[in-house]
Amino acid sequence: MLQIFCPHCGELRAEEEFHAAGQAHIPRPLDPNACTDQEWGDYLFFRDNPRGLHHELWIHAAGCRQYFNATRDTISYEIFETYKIGEKPSVTAKPKAAAPGEQA
């Protein structure tokens, strides 16, 4: 079970208080009507789904009810940072060599 630092509450809390809400930094197109079906479909459904570093959206559902972003390794599940909506991630590349645990 993950332990997540809520940047709004300023505390490390158990994953049970949170919900994952998908990939972060996917802004809604400012003019949806100008999007082609292709572009709109891309916005709605297509995701990076990376193996490794991932910026994702979480909500402190059973806490402050605020959304925030996390930079997390999808293999080791290590969380490198959490930051508020509107802020940019400070970790954009894996800080250390690939850790074990990636199993065949």
């Binding site: 559902a61 605020q66 959304y67 909506i85 509107g86």
Partner: peptide
Amino acid sequence: MQWLEIYHQTEWP
């Protein structure tokens, strides 16, 4: 409720 919040907090703060 969560729907309103996500749009408010992430799209239209």
